[in-house]
């Protein structure tokens, strides 16, 4: 099935709105409303995972996978650092906070790129944590 795309030179956001919404929810989960953003993303993915537009399917799959793996990686390692070092150890805080900051910021930056790609109607794969195209 042929999919009509808006002219990128005329439209401010020529990409499919669902793909943009998926990337936006990925970022909202990281920056504004943790957990709630993820739940909304889960709902969006569940409802549209078989969407006829492969670009929408791809962005939904990428953001779901990146949220799950990225979140697990972020939370498990942070908890691991405090479990090993102990809450009373200042070095746990130095390493734990720096680790969380860096990984969290990295996920946001990857989300930026995903959002920009979705807005312009392009595909995007999250490095390492995003699945390969089927």
């Amino acid at each position: 099935m042929r999919i009509e795309r808006p002219d990128p030179l005329v439209h401010a956001m020529p990409g499919p709105p669902l793909a943009i919404a998926a990337e936006a929810l990925f970022l909202i989960n990281l920056m504004l409303l943790p957990v709630l953003g993820f739940l909304l993303l889960c709902g969006l993915w569940h409802r549209h995972r078989r969407h006829h537009d492969p670009l929408v399917r791809s962005h939904l799959r990428q953001t779901m996978s990146a949220s799950l793996w990225g979140g697990a990686f972020l939370a498990a390692s942070s908890l691991g650092i405090f479990a090993i070092g102990g809450l009373d150890n200042p070095w746990s805080w130095v390493i734990g906070v720096l680790y969380f900051l860096l990984v969290h910021a990295l996920l946001i930056l990857l989300g930026f790129l995903g959002l920009v790609r979705a807005m312009n109607g392009h595909d995007w794969r999250y490095p390492v944590i995003g699945p390969h195209s089927p």
């Binding site: 970022l27 920056m31 930026f112 790129l113 790609r117 807005m119 312009n120 392009h122």
Partner: peptide, 20 residues
């Protein structure tokens, strides 16, 4: 306050991504 900076980053990347 990070929101305007967020918008600025998306703005810069978006414009470069769709450059003519």
């Amino acid at each position: 306050e990070p929101i305007p900076f967020f918008a600025m980053t998306v703005f810069a990347f978006n414009m470069v991504n769709r450059r003519r």
